[in-house]
Design a protein around this nucleic acid. Sequence first.
DNA 1: GGCTACCAAGTAACCCGGTA
DNA 2: TACCGGGTTACTTGGTAGCC
Length: 303
Amino acid sequence: MPSQSVNISQITISELNNAVLNFNRPMPSSSSCSPVLSSLSLPTSTQSRSMSAEQARELLTMSTPIPDNIYIDTNDIARKMKEWFTLRISTRSFFAVHVLGTGRNRLRKLLTVPRPFNSLKAGKELYIKMYNWLKLSEDVKKEILSVVGMNDEKSKKIAQGPEGEEEEYACPKKISRKREVSHHSETSSYSLLSPDSFLHTSITAETLNAFINKQVDYVDTKKISNLIKDWLKETQATQEWFATKILGRCRKTLNQCLNNPREWKNLTQNKGIFVTMHNWMCLTKENRHEIMRVYKAPNMNSH
DNA sequence: GGCTACCAAGTAACCCGGTA
DNA sequence: TACCGGGTTACTTGGTAGCC
């Protein structure tokens, strides 16, 4: 994969070094891992330019021999990585190919059957990369993902069509329309557009975004489905409008969620829809009405 | 590490019922 | 009867995991 400088990236080497400085801080709920990245040969803090994809990968790579006193708990790393993947910030395939530089099946093996660190050969480097990855802040991780994947020519080529000769993988933001939608909900990027008229309302788009994407631990899916159905009847708002304007999904998806709500624990991608619906119903009647007016909900003339 | 089956999510097509 | 909104079914696609 060719190394390219990335102009649009906002991340700087100094920011990355700041992240590295925090590495001496213990990992949350971790006691078995010792800092490793501090031994890496990182760019100096005087460099304040955007990093290239290669530099992003280098950041996670051991560039010096592994000290004998360093022990990495592969089980712990695998568990934490699996937890991180549930956030759906990146697919396993994407992470394997672009961050680790290996195949998705290889990563799966590392996560499902973690072998003792000392018994590993080439796998050591991959675990170290993951260890270092877990130490980064979420913002830095996202920037790295952006740098190593979203902007390189390979990704663009594959994103344009199935002609790619390289290993098939999925880019969560560019390639998969479905995952993009899912990602959208999981990462709290709100679906509402920002009409100019919103500027004149008492509730701002930012406020609404923050509120409606508020994280929720649990949603009673059946209850919220019934509430939404009742609310749609009451206000005569159409499923089409609510689905596209508020949820950012197609009407059919909303319809299925309302009529066949799965148990919360069984949900994966559609959790975001129920979270948004839950938060929507937590808004005051007045706020909902105002938003409906701004977003030109049908039948608003009658209210 | 390759192959393959399964699952989840999203959507198109179609149908049905209400209404003007 | 045409139109619109809601519901159902089948299909497509990507991710994951089992098997070897």
